[in-house]
Structures are given as structure tokens and as C-alpha cells.
Nucleic acid binder design. Structure first.
Lengths: 148, 148
DNA sequence: ATAGGATCTGTAGTGGCTACAGATACAAGA
DNA sequence: TCTTGTATCTGTAGCCACTACAGATCCTAT
């Protein structure tokens, strides 16, 4: 877990290489540096960013965490735990549990939407309905409690 | 479907009443007016907005559509169809079908995340693992293809 | 008349990017 | 060495759908 030493002896590479290897947009990399998620890298004499192995590892972490839907603040916390703690697993797990519940809530919300939409689309398609079921639904025509 | 006549004879009510009856934040109502989703209402002599029945109907539509996840532009299009077309159902249905596919994609993405997260959380919890499975996953330790 | 709540306009911010524009650096080929 | 094309820089602004003030004015009940 010795991942905080970014100053290793591997060759340092420009941002375009980091971008292509990690699948992360150049502008996003600069954004992550701006918001403190990535440390500022060394620079060439001309001012170009030069990234070492540690940056590749760290950005890989960030991207995988983003793909799992963690917010940048959650990722920040996870990286901090990885750096500072001998046994970070309990705390890291807590971050993941909270996020997992959020993901499950979002799934449930979307599934509720999907159910209404799917039903409405079917009713729009059957061609037997004199008015448009979707628009009637949205205008609240089928809900007697609408209006107060 | 005669919903474009907002100048009816019912009493006109201030924004706070519209907000409470529709569950839509006052500032959101003003935002919707700014972006053209709601027409500008009549005003009192002192400049306060006064909303009639048509606005209540229209904002109800917008809120229900938002709850179903439609974007503001999709809602704009649906309202236009409702106003302009004798038979808007085919086009409205097309808007809903595109949106339904988007919702299903989001559900699938979230379910993929949920699967990875749930597995990782379980492995973090079992206490048999020497290192933290979540952090190892994010650092890419269990993926031999990581690095290029 | 007064006071408290409602409302106004304008501005800025949220999260996570993304897209320029104008200027400079870098590398390859002639 | 020079030229040219590509890569990179910084700064600014925008996207989407809101949300939150701040200072000023309006409105209504006492």
C-alpha cells in the first residue's frame, strides 16, 4: 500500500499519454488537478505537465471509482483512507455502503419511472384510445386528486 | 384539449399559492418562466405575479413530467405537441419511447455498479481478507489488464 | 400607521464535467 | 537550422436543473 510516493524513477510522460492510457479526457485530468483530486505534477522547462507512475495509479483509482458512481468527495475520502490508515477497510467499507444505498435508491426511482412510462407507451400504441394517454397522464386527467 | 387559454375568469393567485398547490419551489417556478417553460403571468400593480388556472394546469404537467425524468426540452416538445396538434399521440409517444430507453440504460448502468459494490462490500465485511478488497479493486490490483 | 411575511430582481453557486480561444511548446522532417 | 503540424498551456464560459442568497419593495392583518 505504498502508493503515496509519486516521485519514482520511471520516465515521466505528458498529459496526452496519461489521457490515452487511462481513458480520461485531458481537460478532465486538469480539472481533477484543479479540484485537488490529483496532485500537481512536475513540469518540463516549457511548462508541460509530466506524470510519473504514481499519477497513473492514482488516476486509475479515480476513474474506476467514478465508473462505480462514487462522487469526487467520496473518492477523495477513500484516497485519504488508503494513504493514512494501516487498516482502512472498515472506514472504506462505510463509504461504499452509503454509496451502495444511494445507488439502490436511484435504481428504485428509475424503475418506478420505467413502469409508468412503459405502461403509457403501450396505451399510446394500441390505437384504440381517442385521446393521447401520455398527455392525459401528464395533464393529470386520470387523477381525481389533482387540483389541490 | 383546450389548454392554451390561460386568460380564464378564475381568480388569479400569487406565486406562493401556486408553489404550495403544485409542490414546486417558488424559485423553480421563476426559473421555468425564465427558460420559457411557463409563460410570464399577469402582474399586480405592485409587480407580483398572478397565476390563473391555466398556469396551474401547465405547471402540474411540467412537474409530473419531471417526476418521470423527462428533460425540460422533452417537456417543452410535449407541451408544443399538445397545443399544436389535433392528433399528437404518435409524436408524443416517440418522445416517451426515446426517454424510456434512456431510463432503461440508466437502470442497467446502475445495476452493474450495484453488483460490483455489493460484492465488494461483502468481501470487506467478512474479515478474512488481509487487505481491503474495495481499495484493491479501485487500485486495479485484481485486474491484470490494468496498466495499459 | 406599523410590522411581519410574501415577493421581487439580480447574482452566484452546485457537481462533474466539457469546450473553446489565443498563445506557447515540442518533435519530426526537410 | 528551419518549418510545420501537433500537443499543451491558461483562462473563461457553458451545460443541466435547479437552489440560495441579498437588498429592496409589496401586501395584508392588527
Amino acid at each position: 500500500m505504498d502508493r503515496k510516493n509519486l516521485g519514482d524513477t520511471a520516465p515521466r510522460l505528458p498529459i496526452g499519454v496519461l489521457s490515452r492510457r487511462t481513458g480520461c479526457n485531458i481537460e478532465t485530468i486538469r480539472y481533477y488537478e484543479k479540484v485537488g483530486l490529483l496532485p500537481a505534477p512536475a513540469r518540463s522547462d516549457g511548462g508541460h505537465r509530466l506524470y510519473g507512475h504514481g499519477h497513473f495509479m492514482r488516476l486509475g483509482f479515480v476513474r474506476r471509482a467514478r465508473e462505480l458512481g462514487f462522487t469526487l468527495d467520496e473518492i477523495r475520502a477513500l484516497l485519504q483512507l488508503a494513504e493514512d490508515r494501516d487498516r482502512p477497510c472498515a472506514e472504506a467499507r462505510e463509504v461504499a455502503v452509503v454509496h451502495l444505498e444511494d445507488v439502490r435508491t436511484k435504481i428504485a426511482d428509475l424503475q418506478a419511472m420505467e413502469a409508468v412510462l412503459a405502461e403509457t407507451v403501450v396505451r399510446c400504441a394500441d390505437g384504440q384510445t381517442p385521446e393521447c394517454p401520455l398527455l392525459e397522464t401528464l395533464f393529470g386527467s386520470f387523477d381525481p386528486s389533482a387540483g389541490k
